[in-house]
Design a protein around this nucleic acid. Structure first.
Length: 399
DNA sequence: GTCAATTCACATGAAAGAGACCACGGTCTAGTG
DNA sequence: CTAGACCGTGGTCTCTTTCATGTGAATTGACGA
């Protein structure tokens, strides 16, 4: 079939989607399934803010895709609505601390907050306490309660240390006409354990745990969304169930389930099918994984790519176990060939660790007794993806 | 044979350096009236 | 006289290096049965 024909057919075929947004992660449905308890709790905790009192700080835990952000945003929205109705001034600030180059350091976070309140601040160059001062001043001018939601706060604290939270809570002591309430959201359940006790007690005056969704719950959510997203009769029997089962299998991640459904829809549409069938879900799962890895690898710096290339080559060449030392040797030779300045083994060790985190590689620490202690490295990718990655690396490294 | 000490090959941590980016204030220069 | 170009200083941020310390079990070697 020629390209032209394809385009003609494509135009004739009507889309499955009537409102694709409903499947996107930032979509905000009016009613949120299976989180009624959490929402009422948060609402009750934060309600005093409407009367101008300072509510307790809240800390919310839960794995990815358990609806933390959604609930938080939902409650803020309601508070804002009620506040507007009654002519109360409340400022709500939502920041995602994971966003690179926006709010992933102390300086950036505070600067970003100040910016949200309407100051201009340089990206860098000022001393951090200067930025605090600016923020402090502008908060003082507002003369109203401020609700500060820090999403993925664990990322921030891991990088910037916990005195940042301490500083933020401390501000309250010096404010007269306004106060700041912190709402922390974390994916990491053990996050609070390594916190300074002082910080911990002030941050988590109230704690809320978001349990993972189970399969039936995810099904409900998927149904609710897919009714909005797809036209009638485009989703075959069992599709929703299967998506839900996949997502429930690894820690009840609703976001993943929605993505799976969306991508399955896109694939079915592209293939010119009449409806979304079970097999598209498998294809979607592969595609998501493949895209994720390919994107990741492409965006890595040269050194990381060289390291990954070394790992893949050496793992493919030798069938038995591969250790950090072997990778480093290969890597050094590779650097020689490609005119890359070789990094120290210390650094490579960290890089391997990062690839492990990304799930591209499985690096398990093993002790071989007298023969030392090292990482046993395997590749955590399906054959087909591995080949693709290798191709990319060949191009990127100019081999 | 048993048991603690040794030893290997890194892992893991902490600190500090290099180099990119940026703001700010001061100095110099050239253009203007 | 003044706007703009051009420093030097001091700050952040990321990626690395350097130095130091930690670690778990195979191996070793002393010891006693």
């Amino acid at each position: 079939m020629g390209a032209e024909d394809y385009l003609r057919d494509y135009l004739k075929q009507d889309s499955f989607f009537q409102n694709k947004v409903a499947l996107q992660p930032n979509y905000h449905p009016e009613d949120i399934n299976h989180r009624e308890n959490e929402i009422t709790k948060i609402t009750k905790i934060l309600a005093p803010i409407l009367k101008g009192h300072k509510p307790s700080n809240v800390f919310m835990y839960g794995k990815t895709g358990t609806g933390k952000t959604l609930c938080a945003k939902h409650v803020i929205q309601q508070i804002n609505t009620v506040a507007n109705e009654n002519n109360k001034k409340i400022i709500t600030l939502y920041v995602n601390c994971k966003l690179k180059r926006v709010a992933d350091t102390e300086y950036r976070l505070v600067a970003e907050l100040a910016r949200m309140l309407g100051t201009e601040l340089p990206i860098t160059g000022l001393p951090t306490d200067e930025v605090y001062n600016v923020f402090f001043k502008i908060v003082n001018i507002q003369e109203c309660p401020i609700l500060l939601i820090l999403d993925e706060i664990d990322q921030l604290v891991k990088k910037a240390g916990d005195d940042l939270i301490y500083n933020l809570t401390r501000i309250n002591g010096e404010l007269e006409k306004s106060h700041i309430t912190l709402v922390g959201i974390s994916n990491d359940l053990s996050f609070a354990d390594n916190l300074d006790p002082r910080v911990k007690s002030s941050l988590s005056e109230e704690e809320l745990i978001f349990p993972p969704y189970n399969a039936p719950q995810i099904q409900d959510i998927l149904r609710q969304r897919s009714e909005k997203a797809f036209k009638k009769n485009t989703v075959e029997q069992g599709v929703v169930e299967k998506c839900a089962a996949y997502a429930a299998r690894d820690h009840g991640d609703a976001r993943r389930a929605l993505e799976l459904l969306r991508v399955a829809g896109e694939i079915a549409e592209r293939e010119g099918k009449n409806s979304i069938a079970l097999e598209q879900i498998d294809e979607a799962e592969d595609k998501i994984e493949r895209d994720r890895v390919v994107e990741l690898v492409k965006n890595q710096p040269k050194q990381f790519q060289a390291c990954l290339y070394s790992i893949i080559q050496i793992v493919s060449n030798s069938k038995d176990e591969v250790y950090t030392g072997d990778v480093y040797e290969f890597y050094k030779q590779l650097c020689d060939k490609t005119d890359l300045r070789p990094l120290t083994q210390r650094r490579i060790s960290d890089i391997i660790g990062e690839f492990d985190m990304f799930g591209v590689v499985n690096a398990k620490i093993v002790s071989k007794g007298r023969y030392g202690r090292t990482r046993e490295i395997k590749i955590g990718l399906p054959q087909e993806v591995k080949k693709k990655v290798l191709n990319i690396l060949n191009v990127e490294l100019g081999l």
